[in-house]
Amino acid sequence: MKIFCISEVFILVLALLLAVIRSLPGPVFFPLRVLAIVYADFFRGVPTILVITLLGFGAPALALNGVPTSTTFWGIVALVLVYTAYVSEVYRAGIESVHPSQAAAARSLGLNHGQSLAYVVLPQAVRRVVPPLLNDFIGLQKDTALVGVLGSIEAFKQTQIDQAATFNFTSGLAAAVLFVAVTIPLARFTDWLVARDRRRQLAGVPA
């Protein structure tokens, strides 16, 4: 759970940054945009378990000065690297789904590109992509179990220990119930938020 919370915060922030970089206009930002695209393509292409094992076992094995050896640390880094790539695409879809007339209205009032993004486009974009963000949220929750491969204690790992000790699978079931108990209320709350926002979004549209 700790791994999940820490990772999620970094992912949400870094992915937004990546998505904004990809949307920067003009030839001057071309190198940055290319870097962002390469990053997203690479980390969506490579299997997550591979990134986790390479970083989780490989980085500590390098035994370089100043490089942390904690598997929890590298587990978080690996998850953040991979999920930032996926989530940045979700944000990008959100940004592009905001009708260009919104940006046009903002720019027409004299707001510059950054202000129009910050006050008009992003607030709408982020609200729109809450369902797919939740999807990745849930996926991350489950993928933290992969970090168990590195030996960190996670709910899943803990149940394995219990299972081995008692041949009793109820703790496995308990872990499953725990995951579901968190995600279902979250999903309903998301639906409510989306419905309210959709009402506001459709305000100016002729019926």
């Binding site: 720019r107 004299g110 510059n112 008009v120 305000a203 100016g204 549209v205």
Partner: peptide, 21 residues
Amino acid sequence: DVNQVRRGIGIVFQAFNLFPH
């Protein structure tokens, strides 16, 4: 300076384009 120019010109569109949030 495009933003400077737009400060002195107001435009209103057919679809209102109010910020819904």
